[in-house]
Simulated scan of single mutants.
Amino acid sequence: MSALQASLRAAFGAALGLVYPPTCIACGQATAQPHALCPPCWSGLRLIERPFCERLGTPFALDLGVGTLLSPRAIAEPPVFQRARAVALYDGTAQDLVHRLKYGDRLDLGRPMARMMASAGAELIADADLIVPVPLHALRLWRRRFNQAALLARGVAKASSLPCDVRALARVKRTRPQVGLTRAQRAENLQGAFRVPEAAKPRIAGRRVLLVDDVATTGSTGNAASRALMRGGARQVDLLTFATVSAETT
């Protein structure tokens, strides 16, 4: 971009800000910066920071002592994916943002959410070769018109300069909604739901895949998608989401 183009773009942005003042991406209140959160919404975002389970990425319900790396759940039920990371717990502001993106057609939220995901998942990104979103079944994609996981995956790819392949994984089974199902029911519902197309296998063979979704609840979707990627030839799969459900509530 030339100096003139940059100057014109800055001037246009400033003029646009006078007509359309920046607002909070969660509640719509005025903010100092565009694509940001206001102080109350920011305080309602329960960011996940260490110490947390190094496998599931969930904070410990209790202080388990210095040197503890894995939660009891990760030890009792090791996930298929190697590691999971998320920006925040799935409540308050995080839940509002996910719902606005997913059900409110707020595609503009994808960019700031993806930037936060790229920051939270920096260690996973450093080890990844390829970003792959969790796919929707064709009928659900037609009804919703977009895949929020693919939108976030493209944003993370842009922020990290990693390639993103939205066709590396396909959802071949039309599953019922996961809401309200137990962990066992979710796993059964997703059995055989994902597959790596034959044409995509060379693109993931031996590669370290970063799987992207909006929310991790019981881990069933991440496990099913990761299992399909590993069977398709991936060397390793890590999971990055915007939000995750706390271990003590799953």
Rank of each mutant, 00 (worst) to 15 (best):
residue 5 Q to H: 10
residue 13 G to A: 15
residue 15 A to Y: 07
residue 19 V to R: 10
residue 20 Y to A: 11
residue 21 P to V: 07
residue 22 P to H: 08
residue 23 T to C: 10
residue 25 I to R: 01
residue 26 A to M: 04
residue 31 T to C: 14
residue 34 P to N: 12
residue 38 C to T: 03
residue 38 C to V: 07
residue 43 S to I: 06
residue 49 E to G: 15
residue 52 F to Q: 09
residue 55 R to H: 09
residue 56 L to S: 08
residue 59 P to Q: 14
residue 66 V to A: 15
residue 78 P to E: 12
residue 80 V to H: 11
residue 81 F to E: 04
residue 81 F to S: 02
residue 82 Q to M: 12
residue 83 R to C: 07
residue 90 Y to C: 08
residue 91 D to C: 03
residue 92 G to N: 11
residue 92 G to W: 10
residue 95 Q to R: 14
residue 98 V to K: 06
residue 99 H to C: 09
residue 99 H to A: 08
residue 108 D to A: 12
residue 111 R to K: 11
residue 115 R to W: 06
residue 119 S to C: 07
residue 123 E to S: 15
residue 124 L to I: 09
residue 134 V to Q: 04
residue 135 P to N: 07
residue 138 A to H: 11
residue 139 L to W: 07
residue 140 R to C: 00
residue 142 W to R: 13
residue 143 R to A: 13
residue 143 R to M: 04
residue 143 R to Q: 12
residue 145 R to H: 14
residue 147 N to E: 02
residue 147 N to H: 03
residue 151 L to D: 01
residue 151 L to H: 01
residue 153 A to R: 00
residue 161 S to A: 08
residue 165 D to K: 00
residue 165 D to R: 02
residue 179 V to C: 05
residue 181 L to E: 11
residue 183 R to K: 15
residue 186 R to D: 01
residue 188 E to M: 01
residue 189 N to D: 06
residue 192 G to Q: 11
residue 193 A to P: 02
residue 195 R to D: 02
residue 199 A to P: 08
residue 200 A to L: 02
residue 204 I to Q: 04
residue 205 A to P: 13
residue 209 V to C: 07
residue 210 L to T: 00
residue 212 V to Y: 04
residue 214 D to C: 06
residue 215 V to L: 02
residue 219 G to L: 04
residue 220 S to T: 03
residue 222 G to D: 02
residue 226 S to N: 12
residue 228 A to D: 08
residue 233 G to R: 09
residue 237 V to C: 05
residue 238 D to Q: 09
residue 239 L to C: 01
residue 242 F to D: 04
residue 244 T to Y: 00
